[in-house]
């Protein structure tokens, strides 16, 4: 799974810490998701979608090995 959360965050001009607080997780979790080390749950993905104002498919993409 690949994602463009870093780009979406840059568009909104918010830090990892701010995004983490908005969706109720730790900053390290945001960092791990951005680095593709952790695939979030559907609940967390939908919370991100709410913050970015875009459907989940816009910033999460399946990679070749998925």
């Amino acid at each position: 799974m690949e994602n463009t959360i870093k780009v979406e965050r840059a568009i909104l001009n918010i830090t990892q810490d701010e995004l983490a607080k908005r969706i109720g997780v730790s900053r390290q979790t945001i960092n791990s998701i951005e680095a593709n080390r952790y695939v979030p749950s559907t609940v967390l993905a939908l919370k991100l979608s709410e913050v970015f104002g875009k459907p989940v498919n816009d910033f999460f993409k399946l990679s070749a090995d998925d």
């Binding site: 109720g24 730790s26 979790t29 791990s32 979030p40 749950s41």
Partner: peptide
């Protein structure tokens, strides 16, 4: 202190 779904995982 900071518990979320990743720490549970």
């Amino acid at each position: 202190k900071e518990e979320d779904e990743m720490t549970i995982h």
